[in-house]
Design a protein around this nucleic acid. Structure first.
Lengths: 122, 122
DNA sequence: ATCGGTCATCGTCGATATACGATAACCAAT
DNA sequence: ATTGGTTATCGTATATCGACGATGACCGAT
């Protein structure tokens, strides 16, 4: 019943650009981005150049625990980074990861637009 | 803490919050794309320049009903189009929509990379 | 009219997502 | 040590997702 789509080890590439090579990885990154609250949080983080959880909470109509969860989702997806700072946590966007994701998404979509989307399975 | 917070308002508020509409739309499009099976289906559709549901099923380890549901998700998100064709349904990628989505995602992510992601008021 | 092929939908089931409040931990300052 | 502020996590409740099989509808060919 399971099995579903093949799932190869991402095997982190050395260069770093092809971080979102497989469909699974790309889907995961997109899932981390496909929530309006997380999009807003990402925007806010990029604006203020790093801030703590409460800062985000003060800018959103969500509970602290909810914001913390959204941050965790993006953190685990590698979209943002976290650095403990005294009693707080300083969150910053991972610009390299965002740039790589942007390239991956554009690559996929533009290839589909052009009709040159090869079935690069695995 | 804020007292009562409206968590879900189906937009349409005259002077209400309009900044959520864009994020919501983008999040919805991304959600339609954030599944490995749908990414693969989209690639296949773009390769063959339109095909029927069974064609997709034959290229994926999923049941026909499952593929049909994935197609429906992307259809309702506006990523693909459908045209009845005899006893089948001819699915094609909506290249304009994909190009627009690509631009939107790149716009968001590049703005975050550059730190110029304003909290879009308009 | 019947058959074969195709498709969308229904019902179901388990897993996941999303939201919240409550709680404990942690640090800085008193 | 106690207080106050911040954060992560737990537990819970609800909603949605993702998959499947079964079913009925639809069309073309027999």
């Amino acid at each position: 019943m399971e099995g579903s789509i093949e799932h190869q080890h991402p095997q982190s590439a050395p260069g770093g650009i092809s971080r979102c090579a497989s469909d699974d990885a790309l889907a995961r990154s997109l899932a981390a981005l496909s929530h309006p609250a997380r999009i807003r949080i990402l925007r806010h983080l990029s604006n203020v150049e790093g801030c703590c959880c409460k800062d985000v909470v003060d800018h959103m109509p969500l509970a602290q625990s909810t914001v913390s969860q959204h941050l965790k989702v993006m953190l685990e997806a590698g979209l943002i980074r976290m650095k403990p700072e005294g009693g707080r946590s300083c969150y910053t966007v991972d610009r390299a990861a965002l740039a790589a994701l942007s390239a991956s998404v554009s690559g996929l979509l533009e290839a589909c637009v052009a009709g040159t989307a090869s079935d690069q399975k695995s």
